[in-house]
C-alpha cells in the first residue's frame, strides 16, 4: 500500500477518482505517459486494494476503494511531499511496475 501511494502519478489517479468513477481513457488523458505505463500504475493500485475496476463494453472503469486511513496517508504524503516510501522501495517498485506492465 505504501509503495502504491509513494508514486505521484498514482496519487494523482486517486485524486481524480475522488470525484467519481472514470474510464481508463479519461484518467490517462491527464498524464503524459504511455498507455502501458498507465495500465501498470492501475495494476499496482488495484493490487494494493485502493481502486476497483469493472469492464463495461470495451472500456475499463475504475473507482476509488480507499479507507479513511489510506486516504489520510495519501493526503499526508501529498502535503508534506514525503517520498520516503518511494526511496525505500525504488528498486522493487520499478520492478513491480515492469512486472505489471508485462502482464
Amino acid at each position: 500500500m505504501f509503495k502504491a501511494l509513494a508514486d505521484p502519478t498514482r496519487r494523482q489517479v486517486l485524486q481524480l477518482l475522488r470525484h467519481g468513477p472514470k474510464s481508463a481513457g479519461e484518467l490517462a488523458e491527464h498524464f503524459p505517459v504511455s498507455k502501458p505505463t498507465m495500465s501498470a500504475h492501475f495494476a499496482v493500485l488495484r493490487a494494493a486494494g485502493l481502486i476497483d475496476s469493472d469492464k463495461q463494453g470495451k472500456a475499463i472503469i475504475y473507482r476509488l476503494k480507499m479507507s479513511v486511513l489510506e486516504e489520510a496517508l495519501m493526503e499526508f504524503s501529498e502535503l508534506l511531499g514525503l517520498n520516503l516510501a518511494q526511496r525505500a522501495g525504488k528498486t522493487s517498485g520499478h520492478a513491480n511496475l515492469r512486472k505489471a506492465s508485462t502482464k
Binding site: S23, G25, L27, A28, K35, S39, F42, K58, I60, I61
Partner: peptide, 8 residues
C-alpha cells in the same frame, strides 16, 4: 451512463 470514451 458512464463515459467510456477510451480504454487503456
Amino acid at each position: 451512463p458512464l463515459d467510456v470514451g477510451g480504454h487503456v
